[in-house]
């Protein structure tokens, strides 16, 4: 029996880092059950590095299907510590079993699809619930906007093109605990360092509150729908949600009338 081969990666390892290891493992023909994926913790000393890779055995050059690469890219954005092992297992098995990627009933594929689904939702939520506030900078022609958002997963690379394609005539900065996305002038820059929250007042937000209050129809109350679509975890960064109790009270008064 082969000894398990240990690989240590940082907790926020990117797709590229995982891919380099996975490629080497595949070339050395190491099956998933012989690989142990570890996450580097603060206690680890610098020498807790990955084992040297076994000799590459000359194999024929294989390509990975595009659909599979796309799935692997998604699941490697996930924060689950199991993602490295799962991704390698999916990769290994699809190389040996054609068409596996479409077999949604397979436990590995089902788990991968589930992770990919959570990533899609996270990306979607970020597009929806990022809120910019204007930061007035004197003597500058371009306008500056700043946002604070808390994504569940490492999705900044996936979501950045959306913001870059949407807001091109202003400068903006999205700060998150998992890094930042910024557009200054023409470039879009992504970092992975955790950011701190920046508090900015923007008076236009008052008009947004007015709109939110007025577009609500007090004759129809569907709180469950609202909560399932806009989960509670986002509310702390969506200031208009503070108006909800007051809106419900006035809806009640409206009904009694």
């Amino acid at each position: 029996m082969m000894l398990p081969h240990a690989i240590t990666l940082p907790a926020d390892a990117s797709f590229g880092m995982w891919r380099d290891h996975a490629r080497a493992l595949l070339q050395s023909n190491s099956p998933p059950e012989c690989v142990e994926w570890r996450i580097r913790s603060a206690q680890d000393d610098l020498f807790a590095e990955s084992d040297p890779l076994p000799e590459a055995t000359p194999t024929s050059h294989k390509t990975v299907q595009r659909g599979c690469v796309r799935l692997l890219q998604r699941i490697l954005c996930h924060t689950s510590p199991d993602r490295f092992a799962l991704a390698y297992r999916v990769l290994w098995r699809t190389m040996h079993q054609a068409g596996l990627i479409r077999a949604a009933t397979d436990p590995d594929i089902a788990a991968a699809n589930h992770m990919a689904h959570q990533i899609r939702r996270d990306v979607h939520d970020m597009k929806s619930y990022v809120r910019f506030r204007e930061k007035k900078i004197p003597d500058r022609n371009e306008r500056h906007f700043v946002s604070w958002f808390e994504p569940d997963h490492h999705i900044l690379e996936i979501v950045a093109p959306f913001f870059a394609g949407r807001f091109t005539d202003m400068n903006w900065l999205i700060l998150t605990p998992k890094g930042s996305i910024a557009r200054n002038g023409t470039d879009c820059i992504i970092t992975r360092e955790p950011c701190a929250r920046e508090t900015i007042e923007d008076e236009t937000e008052q008009l947004w509150y007015t709109y939110y209050r007025s577009i609500f129809n007090p004759a129809r109350i569907k709180l469950k729908t609202m909560r399932s679509q806009m989960p509670r975890k986002f509310w702390k960064n969506l200031p208009e949600t503070e108006l909800i109790p007051e809106m419900l009270v006035s809806a009640q008064r409206w009904k009694v009338q």
């Binding site: 929806s128 949407r166 609202m226 679509q229 809106m247």
Partner: peptide, 18 residues
């Protein structure tokens, strides 16, 4: 310019009427 469109649309908030 300003703005883009997605094929599936995006909701930016929900009010208590669902």
């Amino acid at each position: 310019g300003l703005g883009s469109t997605e094929s599936s649309g995006i909701c930016h908030a929900f009010t208590p009427d669902g």
